[in-house]
Simulated scan of single mutants.
Amino acid sequence: MAAPLNISFFASSLVSAYWNGAATYYRGMVRALARLGHRVTFYEPDAYGRQAHRDMEDPDWATVVVYPATEEGVFSSLEAARGSDIVVKASGVGVFDALLEAEVLGLKREGTQVIFWDVDAPATLERIGTDPADPFLPLVPRYDMILTYGGGDPVVRAYRGFGARECVPIYNALDPDTHHPVPPDERLRADLSFLGNRLPDRERRVEEFFLSVAERLPRRSFLLAGSGWEDKSKSENVRYIGHLGTGDHNAFNCSPMAVLNVSRDGMARYGFSPATRVFEAAGAGACMITDLWEGIGEFFEPEREILVAANGEEVAQILERLTPALAAEVGRKARARVRAEHTYAHRAKQFEEIFSAGSAWRNGRLP
Rank of each mutant, 00 (worst) to 15 (best):
L195I: 15
S84A: 15
R82P: 13
A121K: 12
V74G: 09
R54K: 14
A69P: 01
F10H: 01
L105Y: 04
A22V: 14
L366H: 10
L292I: 01
R187P: 07
R27I: 14
L139D: 06
A284F: 08
G151E: 09
F351I: 15
E352H: 04
N311G: 12
V330C: 03
S212D: 12
Y159R: 02
G312A: 06
R277L: 00
E186R: 09
G152I: 10
L107D: 12
R239E: 13
L137R: 15
P181S: 03
P141V: 03
E352M: 09
L211R: 04
M1E: 00
A225V: 03
R202Y: 10
F42D: 09
I86F: 04
T70R: 08
V182R: 02
M29S: 05
Q350M: 11
P200G: 04
E103F: 00
A121P: 15
F194M: 10
G228T: 10
A23D: 10
M29Y: 05
P184S: 14
R332V: 11
R339M: 14
G285E: 04
G358R: 11
H53M: 09
L366R: 14
E320P: 08
S227V: 01
F210K: 03
G271R: 08
A121M: 14
L223E: 09
A62I: 00
A158L: 04
G331P: 13
R332I: 10
A69M: 03
A190F: 08
S212T: 04
D153E: 15
L5S: 01
